[in-house]
Design a protein around this nucleic acid. Structure first.
Lengths: 242, 242
DNA sequence: CGAAAGGCTCTTGTATACAAGGGAGCCACG
DNA sequence: CGTGGCTCCCTTGTATACAAGAGCCTTTCG
């Protein structure tokens, strides 16, 4: 249901929507996002082509796009592999995110025509009653929009495009952040603080709050990941006690 | 001679070097860089395939890569077109460059293991005698390396990769900067100042100098471009006085 | 019994064949 | 003469056929 309509936020779809290659691209990306394809999994072009009722040509095109975006890798004449997202790369992407969003915030404060976006974001992140707060995966989507909208509002399309790519790349990880209700609450509060600083045209504080917010999320995600790894390891030990 | 070995600096060559697709990719990119393919030019896949003695399959792969990087665009069932690099996008890419390089400089100052790169850069940009200064296209390559090395030294591979992409995208334009000897001299001096600030572990000044340096280059390039456009327009008027 | 070598299968890389559609030029008609 | 529509060619998008190599399994020899 609703497929991966989320990824249609339209950064660079110069290719005609509805082509087989696009369909395959979206399907594979969703497979990766939904863990139907796990990092390390190997598969072949023909296999994917059969499963998605397409020929190898559009499948290859989709795979090359995904490769460029860092999701998969081709092993010379030995099939494809889902690229694992190691913690080093994750940290690098977070750093990059912070760099870009800080720059966006500074740009935003130098602009005069900002309030439109800010008003809209305020409406979402400052509901009249706490009961109006979203929950679950909705918060993840809203959080993504918050950060993407800030960057987009700065007006640099190239920056927006790259930030969008990073956002998608980190999506698999970031969703973990919103599985804890305390983190959801923190997100609401921190976003509100950032919006305050922006409303006061205080770029330094806005940037500081933004950085702290992202770092907190990053730390929480890292912690949750470690937890999950420990759980998985325990389960593994329980299963194979050799 | 020497082909486009420059682009082999190896950001992401997961594809086997020597493949037809890579050869076509490099050839097309060089065609664009050397203005054998001018922005606005239209061409077809079959045409390129014939010219480069390949089939359409690797040509298409190369074209999709170039499309993703913003060099060309596909017109639905109506051929391909070399994407013009409008001034708005150029400005955006410059802004992005500044953002990334400033971040790199800040990171660099927080590190302890920086001097190696700095020493090497100093050797290049602070020759014992001004006579040892490079000239022509060599300066362009050296300037590119200066900025790329700074970013690479910060240690964020993702940032390095994206910065590299931006660098390539702006190369066509930036080369204009080094056609004026005063700009070459300025580059030497400004690079030296940046290296000084880095040696003194003064991130704020380094970032400021860096920004000023890039902005100066941007302004010069813009001016030279305007000049060239005026010249071209004059020539046009002379040719077709209707 | 072990190890090495050879072949067999499956993989990607490339070439070509086929399908669908857009654009320009031409012809006919008002 | 102008304009609208039609047709043909050329374009990309997709499917399939062919080539070359990497890996594994089997077989054979020491």
């Amino acid at each position: 249901m609703a497929k991966t309509r989320e990824t249609e936020t339209g950064n660079d779809p110069p290719r005609r929507r509805g082509s087989v290659a696009d369909r395959v691209y979206e399907a594979l990306k969703e497979d990766i996002f939904e863990f139907r394809l796990i990092p390390g999994d190997k598969f072949s072009e023909g296999e994917v082509a059969t499963r998605l009722s397409a020929s190898r040509t559009p499948v290859r095109e989709a795979l090359y796009r995904l490769q460029r975006e860092g999701y998969v890798e081709v092993l010379f004449r030995s099939g494809w592999q889902v690229q694992p997202l190691d913690s080093r790369k994750v940290d690098e992407l977070y750093d990059l995110r912070i760099t870009l969003e800080r720059a966006a915030v500074h740009k935003l404060c130098r602009q005069t025509t900002a309030p439109a976006v800010l008003r809209q974001l305020n409406a979402v992140w400052r509901p009249d009653h706490p009961s109006e707060r979203a929950f679950g995966s909705t918060v993840r989507a809203l959080d993504e929009h918050f950060h993407c909208d800030l960057v987009a509002a700065a007006g640099n399309q190239e920056m927006t495009r790259i930030h969008q790519e990073i956002t998608e790349r980190l999506r698999v990880i970031r969703r973990l952040d919103f599985t804890r209700s305390d983190r959801v609450d923190a997100t609401y509060e921190e976003h509100a603080e950032i919006l305050d600083a922006l409303a006061n045209n205080n770029p330094a504080e806005a940037a500081a709050r933004l950085t702290a917010h992202i770092r907190a999320s990053q730390a929480a995600v890292r912690e949750i990941t470690m937890e999950k790894i420990r759980e998985a390891a325990a389960l593994q030990r329980q299963k194979k006690p050799d």
